[in-house]
Amino acid sequence: MARPLRIQFENAYYHVTCRGNSGQEIFSNDVDRLAFLELLERSHDIYQTEILAYVLMSNHIHLFVKTPLGNLQEFMRHFNISYTSYYNWKHARRGHLYQGRYKAFLVDADQYLQEVSRYIHLNPIRVKNRSPMNLGEKEAYLREYRWSSYGGYLSRGGRRGFLEVGEVLAYFGGDNPGGRRKYESFVMEGISGKMSSPLEKGRGHGIIGASEFIEKIRGQYIRFGVGSREIPAVKKILAQVEPERIIREICEAFKVKREEVLEKGYKGVARGILMEMLYRYGGMKQREIGEWMGVDYSSVSVMRKRLFALQKKDRNLSVGIERVKKRIQPSQE
């Protein structure tokens, strides 16, 4: 059976699921769940995604992801490898943790943003062993469930730093007490009434959306991939910054010569900043950056992660990076 098509473009929305191999559990304890969320945050930071909702179950997970850079494949590859490596190390095991690749449904956010978020947040009570609970017990169970983003929608205090609730809550009046209460009522309606899964809309073609949205996607992207197993990333390039301009700005800001920052053995922080800016604003993939700078793509990923860690510790470095960003961002042209 052929793999489902991967459709990628800037600011796309996806419902993503990963299931344990042969139905096995992917979390042994709460330490694993915390590690999962920490690694999710790290991958989100590296690949500049937006996490709109999530839920962790015993043998599978659901994510609602927006990709401003059109890079779902890179994000999920990095994240799944990171958690699998952690889990295998922690529990002295080998082999695959997940059942094949992740599954991703492209979502028509104009029509199904609210529905998909509710579907994810209702997951903890949809498992079979929770069905005997009455309505009140189900409502209480959802509110108390630790491993979901639902608590972050009901209270700012229960929200993880990487969670983006603004887009969904905007449909209910915003991220304020009134908007949060309305969203809670919306989710509770899904408990009491018969609600079909929005995922059913995507069966067969992998797109959760109205017919107009599906035809638009088919016309713009799928027709270009006829005969291939997988569509490569489809990204806008008009707003990208010339790599040479990025180099000039970084060299000027950090007082380093061009040949130095491009030298493989250069140890200064400017090299990591260059890699980050080429990825974020130059439209280059990590493999392309590595080839240009004489290293493999994994080294580029490591350098970008180190830079992220350094920024948290060094305020002057963060200020310098922000200054470079303002100078090279396309909007400043």
Rank of each mutant, 00 (worst) to 15 (best):
K128A: 13
G152C: 09
G100T: 02
Q111Y: 11
G158E: 15
N134A: 06
G100S: 05
E137T: 05
W147K: 03
A140P: 12
Y98M: 03
E144P: 04
K103M: 10
G161A: 12
S131L: 15
A104L: 08
Y153P: 07
G158F: 15
E139H: 12
Y98L: 04
L154I: 09
E115D: 15
Y145S: 02
R94V: 10
V116F: 07
K128R: 13
M133K: 02
R93A: 12
S148E: 09
R101F: 00
Y153H: 09
S149P: 14
Q99D: 13
N134L: 02
S131Q: 15
G151L: 15
L154N: 08
S131V: 13
K128E: 14
R93W: 08
E139G: 07
R130S: 13
G151H: 14
L122K: 00
I120Q: 06
S117E: 06
G157H: 10
Y112C: 03
D108Q: 04
L154P: 08
Q99M: 11
R101T: 01
R143E: 15
Y153G: 12
E139V: 11
E144T: 06
R118H: 12
Y112N: 02
R156N: 11
Y98R: 02
H121S: 05
G152Q: 14
W89M: 10
N134V: 00
R130V: 06
E137S: 08
N134F: 04
A140T: 12
V107P: 02
L122I: 00
E144F: 11
Y145H: 00
A104S: 09
E115H: 15
Q114F: 13
K138G: 03
Y119C: 03
L106D: 06
G157I: 11
S149V: 05
D108C: 04
A109Q: 07
K90H: 06
I125M: 15
Y87R: 06
G151C: 14
S149C: 10
G100I: 01
S149Y: 14
L122V: 00
G95F: 01
H91D: 14
E137P: 04
G157D: 13
K103F: 09
Q99C: 10
K138D: 01
H91G: 13
N123D: 10
S117V: 08
W89E: 12
R159H: 03
R160P: 13
H121K: 04
G100P: 06
H96A: 14
N123H: 09
